[in-house]
């Protein structure tokens, strides 16, 4: 059977791409962030996941406001990156896992999630940068197959944190019922606090970010209980990307333990954060649920 071996979360700030393109990983501004991936790389080397389910928000590459799905799931054999307009390098294509995609879609819809199903899907920096950070030396031969899942974080009304938590739980159940031996890592990308627009642009809330990083491990239900208004007030208008962390965490239904984490602010305008959680095979979660 398929099993989820862990969950990774990371900020996906576009300037990470610029830093990698210019070879600035060792500069004082960037070093703490990139160093956080050393234990991630060790874990990936040891565990060797077959598939990464990447939960992120599209920033206007694949979806325009003419049609904006609340949740979408990729069902393609291949996902391409493309020009987003502001000049970061376009990364090589990503292999999909069509069988697991359709299995997920079948189970999520049966679980009452009304998805948009995408057989063609461009993946933006929020999908590509985390994979590149996981496998920086792969030369574009990514060693995992991928499945993109997007959460609308542009056009309000957005789904609630509770809905995203439940989506994550449904993803966890669906993967666990896939009748093929494979190891899956769930990646949630975005955040933490940031706001790009308005007079409050530049907001970073370190205290709230650290609160989220503590709760995501030990008490994710507390984060799932936050309203969108509370998240925007405390984490900024783009801080709603916290939804991707909550969804990732919902999918981890085993013995969840923190492998590594880092908070480093600012990265560009954002509270930068990385966290890797392992999801042991024992069925009792650390979380209350």
């Amino acid at each position: 059977m398929a099993r989820i071996i862990g969950g990774l979360t990371t900020s996906h700030v576009p300037s990470i791409a610029g830093a990698m393109a210019r070879g600035e990983e060792r500069t004082p501004y960037w070093k703490p962030f990139f160093d956080a991936f050393t234990p991630v790389h060790e874990w990936l080397n040891r565990e060797r996941p077959d598939v990464a389910i990447v939960i992120y928000n599209d920033h206007g590459l694949n979806f325009f406001l003419d049609k904006m799905p609340t949740f979408s799931v990729g069902a393609a054999a291949r996902y391409d990156n493309a020009d987003e307009g502001w000049g970061i390098p376009i990364l090589p294509s990503f292999e999909g896992d069509v069988d697991l995609s359709w299995h997920l879609i079948e189970h999520l819809v049966a679980d009452e999630f009304d998805l948009t199903i995408c057989q063609e899907m461009l993946v933006d920096h929020a999908f590509t940068l985390p994979i590149k950070l996981m496998y920086p030396d792969s030369g574009g031969q990514w060693p995992v197959r991928t499945i993109p899942i997007t959460i609308n974080s542009i056009q309000h009304p957005l789904p609630s944190a509770m809905r995203c938590w439940k989506l994550g739980q449904a993803i966890g159940r669906a993967v666990n019922s896939f009748p093929k031996d494979m190891k899956v890592v769930v990646v949630g990308t975005g955040g933490l606090s940031h706001q790009l627009d308005g007079e409050r642009a530049g907001l970073i809330n370190k205290a709230f970010d650290l609160f989220c990083m503590e709760k995501i491990v030990s008490d994710p239900a507390a984060l799932a209980a936050l309203s969108n208004r509370e998240i925007i007030e405390r984490a900024g208008s783009q801080g709603v990307e916290l939804m991707t962390w909550i969804t990732m965490r919902g999918a981890l239904n085993g013995d969840v333990r923190k492998v590594t984490s880092l908070y480093h602010a600012p990265i560009s305008n954002t509270g930068g954060a990385v966290m890797l959680l392992s999801n042991g095979s024992q069925s009792v979660s650390l979380a209350a649920e």
Binding site: I154, H156, M162, S227, R229
Partner: peptide
């Protein structure tokens, strides 16, 4: 659970509502 909440009165914080989108 409350379904609707006001998002447009958070100081200094534009929220992209249906009104903005239209």
């Amino acid at each position: 659970m409350s379904a609707l909440e006001s998002l447009t009165d958070i100081p200094g914080t534009p929220v992209f509502t249906g009104f903005s989108a239209s």
